[in-house]
Write a protein that binds this DNA or RNA. Sequence first.
DNA 1: GCGACAG
DNA 2: ATCTTGTCGC
Length: 235
Amino acid sequence: MPSALHPWNLSPTDAVALQYELAKQIRLECTPAMARAGIGRIAGVDIGFEDGGETTRAAVVVLAWQPGTTEHLQVIEQVVHREPTRMPYIPGLLSYREVPAALGAFAKLSRYPDLVMVDGQGIAHPRRIGVASHLGLWLELPTIGIAKSRLCGRFEPVGEARLSTSELTHRGETIGVVLRSREKVKPVFVSPGHLIDQASALDWVIRCLHKTKLPEPTRMADRLASRRDRPKTAG
DNA sequence: GCGACAG
DNA sequence: ATCTTGTCGC
């Protein structure tokens, strides 16, 4: 279990130093639990902002993984958590801004999922610890990062066909894959976050794709975190 | 020193 | 991320 006093409000310099330390703890292998018990619940996480950015809103949507049944990929539970925004957006330090709120949302879940998909990078990060990795370390759950754009790394153009991929590399390492999740739409960047390997990360994302650009977990969380899906006022 | 730069 | 309306295309 991570330190109960894990610092979130650090100066950029200290935040970067901590990333180097935390990155050493990331494990890119599937857990025995995942192989033994399998996956029954997959969660999607995303963060939105209100009041011109003063309030951070975290959303977590848990979907059922029950191939062949009517409940497959249906919503089991969804929660929203709001709290004051604590940091500005700084490329490379996104997790310090978003993870605290995400943890607040997870605390409201009646039960944890077996796998988590996060809107943002996993290890496809300059120091190999994007928001998905950082969240995974804290929760000690398998996480996958699905970003809509690139933070770092290089890649060859992705094929036009759906499910075409291109390797994302950085400083001689493979850090993720660029995936054409839908035809005629900009590709997404998939990278393992924690407790999962690259191949499995890509497999799970593909398995959760319907006809949209984003996999169901992330797409659902996106809608809940965004203000367009706000519940109507009673009356 | 000059760009690039998740959300 | 957010501010914002309608509109073109599969």
